[in-house]
Design a protein around this nucleic acid. Structure first.
Length: 800
RNA sequence: GCUUAUGUGGCGGAAUGGUAGACGCACCAGACUCAAAAUCUGGCGAGGGCAACCUUGUGUGGGUUCAAGUCCCACCAUAAGCACCA
């Protein structure tokens, strides 16, 4: 069979007959089903076999659901703003928009060649002005509700990409794109108040059915911790030094305070600090270090004692020294801590190095003794003496609130979203700065703010976006007062466009609103959302935050965007390592399609292993799947015209229908394929099979190998295309074997087997088991204590 | 260090507490062929036995059960996420 020829033939038929276009029809008696696979970044290197895995998987599900009578939305589009496209353009001396266009063309034709049932009528790219108009519009919604603000802030800065990064883009202290160590830079940035949504993002997980590992990744990233804020008076000032602690019960053990190098009080009381030079040089040193250097756990503690500033412990009025050290982070809590060296490893290390006193406040809990616990009885702690951890915390909280020196607080690791990028290839942030009016949003009627045509779009060394140089674009008038004003020249991060794209698929051609209310109500939540693990704490968090915000504005009807999120495992090279050009282990899906056909490739990638786990590529495995499809084809010579199941095969067919149906709905693709192989093996053993036998196999296999099955179905004379058929159903009763072989154990060890019928009595099964020759031998000279008969499963004879 | 997973043949991997290794790959033997490829048939955890069979076996050590890959406890290893987060 010429795979190329039949693939093209059927792809054309499917496209021309609009089989895969979803209908926005709430009157339809069909139930909706929304299957979403992360839209790709159309990079210059083309489609990866990893894409093929998840696309084939979700395609199989979509095709089955359609045959089951659902109105399935299974869209595809392009996430094309951001650094990779820009770098590709710079390297190849093409305008980014043209580069993107070119890459999309390649990607699309590659995807098309796999016969995936995407609804192409809903395709869009985040770089389309018709799309990013609404991304900008939604940014303005954030702005209008006070959820977007511009502020000067120490942000993560990538010196290689020459742009600011969000906390998520700088995870682990390295730039997500290029791997360079991230530095800090004080810069005025647009920021979204994502931390306001920390609790909602945590809480909302309860309404989802995400995979556990994805939930865990999100929970870790949000990093909730419950504790208390405590105010320490700064001696001889009106100010307090506010700290966050999860162990306010150890307040009596505080022997020093530590503030981060960036702490605001240092500036305010500079005139009081006697060793200001020393403090400032420490600050400078800290600023010059990269995030990685600063947060290296193994590094020895450094710090400077601040002379001239001391704090007062609010529970015993003792005067406490204040230190500055980079082990305290400005970005977490209040940027200052109370140090309890007796019961905190880091404080202990610091105290030891600088000879600061250590006061134990929990019995048997000193860190100086090897095995220390934090849960003993309180000592040296005034009114907390004799209490355990929980009692002491509660009593201290009451004390703090009564004396108005502190309160119970919750802190999150999650920070606000740094939303500005100093790059050309992104959505312009639709804001205008006027000397008189300050920041003024671009009026809705003037959206989209288009990216201008420019000659140079390389990042600059000035820390400003390349757009800043386009004076006739930058210079505009204030929408409020008409005076000369300047446009914001920073652009949005790559994650902006992907933070709402699933909504746009519901109504992609709407030029009046970002999506119509009708479409939103009809499609609701995405039922199945597939994407890589690498997005568990970035895209998925941003998208949920964005959606939750829209929900709070009444713009979308559901709290959470995605019902179920699943993550596919990676396809590794045949050597078990990640595929990369430098390792020389990259498999190009185009080559595989050419050699073995799209169906074999799809089948193999589903069969390769547990969908959620990584799997190493094997050419042999792919050949095996090709062989399987060839065997299915050869079966057609055995077909005799008959529209009922062969009596001999009926039982197994019903079983396999049940198995494949379940497996395809629960992402157990590998066992779905193996069941179909088992069915094929059973057919091969027959002299002949009926049309219905064969057609059922073809329909079950169709979601996995759509081209060849359609072709074979046509070849055996079917007038109806599989795509127009309904999914086979099974009869539970017919999945039960009327005769089966079960094992006989003696003392739990298998000693024989016995064939029984479904309605056989327990007595009869016992007799058969006891009469088995080999079993008899094992019963010689033994006393039978008990015979356990589990119907349809096993017989176990317990002897002494 | 904390959190969450996962440990099964030569390999990918199957097994609602009930015959471990389905299915596939690789490999071995045979058939077809002048030959090769393709295809077909058979074998394939380890050890023993001519055989019937027997012993052993799902990371390690315990436990629960008539019965444990599966449940419980401890440990070891690997992976992922977080990590000087107070």
């Amino acid at each position: 069979m010429n795979t190329k020829q039949i693939e093209e033939k059927w792809q054309k038929i499917w496209l021309n007959n609009h089989y895969f276009e979803a209908q926005n029809n709430s009157d339809s008696d069909k139930e909706k089903y929304y299957i979403l696979v992360e839209f790709p970044y159309p990079s210059g290197s083309g489609l990866h076999v990893g894409h093929v895995r998840s696309y084939s998987a979700l395609d199989a599900m979509a095709r089955m659901k359609r045959m089951q009578g659902y109105n399935v939305l299974f869209p595809m589009g392009w996430d094309a703003f951001g650094a990779p496209a820009e770098q590709y353009a710079i390297k190849n001396h093409i305008y980014p928009a043209d580069a993107v266009k070119e890459n999309i063309k390649t990607f699309k034709s590659q995807i098309m060649s796999l016969g995936l049932s995407f609804d192409w009528q809903r395709e869009f790219s985040t770089t389309d002005p018709e799309y990013y108009k609404w991304t900008q519009w939604q940014f303005l919604e954030f702005y209008k509700k006070g959820m977007a603000y511009k502020a000067e802030k120490e942000i993560n800065w990538c010196p290689t990409c020459k742009t600011g990064l969000s906390n998520e883009d700088a995870a682990g202290g390295v730039c997500e794109r290029c791997g360079s160590p991230v530095t800090k830079k004080l810069k005025s940035q647009w920021i979204l108040r994502m931390s306001d949504y920390a609790e909602k993002l945590l809480d909302g997980l309860k309404d989802t059915e995400f995979e556990e590992r994805i939930k865990v990744a999100q929970i870790n990233w949000i990093g909730k911790s419950i504790g208390a804020e405590v105010d320490f008076k700064l001696k001889d000032t009106e100010d307090v030094l506010k700290v966050f602690t999860t162990r306010c019960d150890t307040l009596f053990g505080v022997t020093f305070m530590v503030v981060s190098p960036e702490h605001a009080l240092l500036k305010k009381y500079a005139n009081k600090i006697k060793n200001l030079k020393e403090v400032e040089s420490y600050q400078k040193e800290a600023a010059s270090k990269s995030e990685i250097e600063r947060t290296d756990v193994s590094k020895e503690k450094t710090g400077v004692k601040i002379e001239g500033l001391t704090a007062i412990n609010p529970v015993n009025n003792e005067e406490i020294e204040i230190w500055i050290s980079d082990y305290v982070l400005a970005s977490y809590g209040t940027g200052a801590i109370m140090a309890v060296p007796a019961h905190d490893e880091r404080d202990y290390a610091f105290a030891k190095k600088f000879n600061i006193p250590i006061i134990p406040v929990i019995e048997g809990g000193s860190i100086t003794e090897e095995a220390y616990t934090l849960d003993g009885t309180h000592i040296n702690s005034g009114f907390l003496n004799g209490l355990n951890k929980e009692e002491a915390i509660n009593k201290m909280l009451v004390y703090l609130e009564e004396h108005k020196i502190g309160k119970k607080t919750t802190n999150y690791r999650l920070q606000d979203w740094i939303f500005s990028r100093q790059r050309f290839w992104g959505e312009p942030i639709p804001m205008i700065y006027c000397e008189k009016c300050g920041w003024v949003p671009v009026p809705e009627t003037d959206l989209p703010v288009l990216l201008p045509k420019v000659a140079h779009y390389e990042p600059t060394d000035t820390g400003e976006s390349p757009l800043a140089n386009i004076t006739d674009w930058v210079n505009t008038t204030c929408p409020k007062c008409g005076a000369p004003a300047k446009r914001e020249t920073d652009t949005m991060p790559n994650w902006a466009g992907s933070s709402w794209y699933w909504l746009r698929y519901m109504d992609p051609h709407n030029d009046k609103e970002f999506v119509s209310r009708d479409a939103l109500n009809y499609w609701g939540m995405v039922d199945y959302y597939n994407g890589g693990m690498e997005h568990a704490t970035r895209h998925l968090l941003y998208a949920r935050f964005w959606h939750q915000f829209l929900y709070d504005q009444g713009l979308v009807p559901t709290k959470e965007p995605f019902k179920k999120r699943v993550a596919h495992g990676m396809i590794l090279g045949s050597n078990g390592e990640k595929m990369s050009k430098s390792r020389g282990n990259v498999i190009n899906p185009d080559d595989m399609v050419k050699l073995y056909g799209a169906d074999a490739l799809r089948c193999y990638e589903l069969f390769i292993g547990d969908y959620e786990k990584d799997a190493a590529w094997s050419d042999f495995g792919l050949k095996g799947c090709k062989r399987f499809l060839d065997r299915v084809e050869r079966l057609k010579t055995k077909v005799i015209d008959n529209s009922t199941y062969s009596p001999k095969l009926e039982n197994i067919i019903h079983k396999i229908i049940k198995k494949v149906t379940n497996d395809l709905s629960t992402m157990k693709y590998n066992t779905a394929v193996s069941s179909l192989m088992i069915l094929t093996n059973a057919y091969e053993e027959q002299e002949s099979i009926t049309t219905k036998d064969y057609q059922t196999l073809l329909v079950l296999l169709n979601p996995i190998a759509p081209h060849i099955t359609e072709e074979l179905n046509e070849q055996i004379g079917s007038k109806t295309k599989i795509v127009e058929m309904t999914w086979p159903t099974f009869d539970e009763e017919k999945t039960i074997d009327n005769e089966l072989t079960i094992g006989i154990q003696v003392n739990g060890k298998l000693r024989g087997e016995v064939t029984i019928s479904t309605d056989e009595t327990e007595e009869s099964i016992k007799n058969k088991a006891l009469n088995n020759e080999n079993v008899k031998r094992h019963l010689e000279n033994k006393e039978i204590i008990k015979i356990i008969v589990i119907k349809g499963k096993i017989v176990n004879i317990v002897v002494k």
